[in-house]
Structures are given as structure tokens and as C-alpha cells.
Design a protein around this nucleic acid. Structure first.
Lengths: 129, 129
DNA sequence: GTTCGTGCAAACGGTTTGCAACAAT
DNA sequence: ATTGTTGCAAACCGTTTGCACGAAC
């Protein structure tokens, strides 16, 4: 994965291991989740490195860290704007395409400088879908 | 505060202490924050009781538990619908009135049953305001 | 040789849990 | 008697940090 170079990240072996397990994982894994996956495939990688690497991805704009569930931070490999739905039954997080919801083009608040916004939707996945 | 009775909560002394410090606190305190306030005023109250009581408030619909910051859950005594702005500089959370943003009347997603939704806005408070 | 990256373990902070005592019904 | 509530401390879980070794420039 040489998109690491694009982000100005030296593609070391542990980082490639993290990237392999993280990018393309659309289940909004927590750092701990990613570590479990990495550890299974590449036992030598330490937890700290996984945490550091994910945070590095976030700083370089390759991922977003989100506070969507209590307690654990989740990382999102999708950097395009989108909304989130948190399934109240399972806790699973789903990406909702930006275009799926019609929103005012931009949000303006008198007292605040708005940098970004997204909808957090609470609901449940319809069974079977 | 006898809105506890309204919620079907037995108004014990520790719970009244928590209620006194929590309701009317619009700074989106974490459980730890509330405990610090309660402990200062009523030193006998244990941390577990504060945590239990806040969770009880949430279950009874007197408060909302929200995952807006990483790591710590915050409790919101405002139960009416509103949006949230997280100040990227300070981490402070502000309530944004529902009417401040024009949204589609209801959100419908084909695969999900939507129970609730709100905007999470990332921004910064304009200085002086 | 100075910086950067890594592994390991310990520390940390917030939250939850187990348990014994006690109050309410 | 049964249930609900409390305080205390310990356990727990995700995350961060300190440190020493090694690789890269």
C-alpha cells in the first residue's frame, strides 16, 4: 500500500500490517479491534505501534477518528463526508452516504466557526436488509 | 427536586445531591465531573452512586448519555431535541437549538429504522462571543 | 550521531463490578 | 423476607507513556 507514501508516511513493515487490516475494513474498528486483527496475522506487532499508526493515519488525513460509541474511539477509513448510523441493537456503525440526506448546503451559526458537521443517526437495521 | 418522583425514582439523599449538581448544569458534564461537584458539597457520596444515579436518570428519560468526546461519556440534562457543537479548541460541547438548523422534517433510510438523529458539528467558538 | 520507529510493560483515567451493610417496603 | 440503595475497594478496559533497543537517514 503505497498510499502511505502519498500521506508522507514511511512505509515500515508494522505500518503496512496495520494498513492492510485497516483500509478496506468498513466496520469502524476501534484501535483494539485493529490490533487484534494485526496480531493474528503478524504476531510481532505491538499494541502501541497499532495505536500510534492509527493516530498517525488520522493526523495525515488518511482516516478519521470518531467518538460514536461510549468508551472506545473508532477509526474510519472513509475520509469523504458521510453520516453515521449507530445501530441501537447491535452497536454497529454504518456509513450513510452524504447524498442520502438532503441537508442545507452549509451550516452557519452566529457564535461559532463551523469546520465540519455530520449527522449521527440512532436507529436499527431492518432485519434481512 | 421532585421531578425524580415524576420519573419514578425514589428520591434518596444521594440522588438528590446528584440531581442538585446535575440538573441545571449545561456544560455536558461527565460522570466524573458530577462526582467531583457532588463530593465537594456532600463528601459522603460514593463514586459508584453518582455513576449509578446518572445512568438511572438516563434510563428514566431525565437525561441523555452521549458519546461526543473520546473516552468519556457525557450526560446531558436537556432532553429536548437539539444538536451539538464540539469546540475543536477547547473540547467544550455546546447545545445548538433544533431550530437553528433547517433540516428535512424526517430522515428516511431504506435499510434502517430511524429512531433519532442529531447533528454533531465540529467548530470553534468565535472569540468574545 | 541524531532522528525516527518499535516492542514491552507499566501507568493512567474513566467506568464497572463484587460485596457487605443498611434502609424501605 | 424480599427488594432496593449505598459506600468502599478492587477489577476492568481502552488508551497513553516511559524507556531502551534498533533502523534509517
Amino acid at each position: 500500500m503505497e498510499l502511505l507514501k502519498t500521506g508522507g508516511i514511511r512505509p515500515t513493515l508494522p505500518r503496512l500490517a496495520v494498513a492492510a487490516k485497516f483500509f478496506g475494513n468498513f466496520n469502524h474498528p476501534s484501535a483494539e479491534d485493529v490490533w487484534a486483527l494485526v496480531k493474528a496475522a503478524y504476531p510481532g506487532v505491538s499494541r502501541a505501534t497499532v495505536y500510534n499508526t492509527l493516530e498517525l493515519f488520522a493526523q495525515k488525513g488518511l482516516a478519521r477518528r470518531r467518538a460514536l460509541k461510549g468508551g472506545r474511539a473508532v477509526y474510519d477509513p472513509v475520509t469523504e463526508r458521510h453520516h453515521h448510523l449507530v445501530d441501537q441493537a447491535t452497536g454497529r456503525i454504518y456509513d450513510i452516504p452524504w447524498a442520502a440526506v438532503r441537508l442545507p448546503g452549509n451550516i452557519a451559526l452566529p457564535d461559532f466557526e463551523v469546520e465540519d458537521y455530520h449527522l449521527v443517526i440512532l436507529g436499527r437495521k431492518k432485519r434481512g436488509k
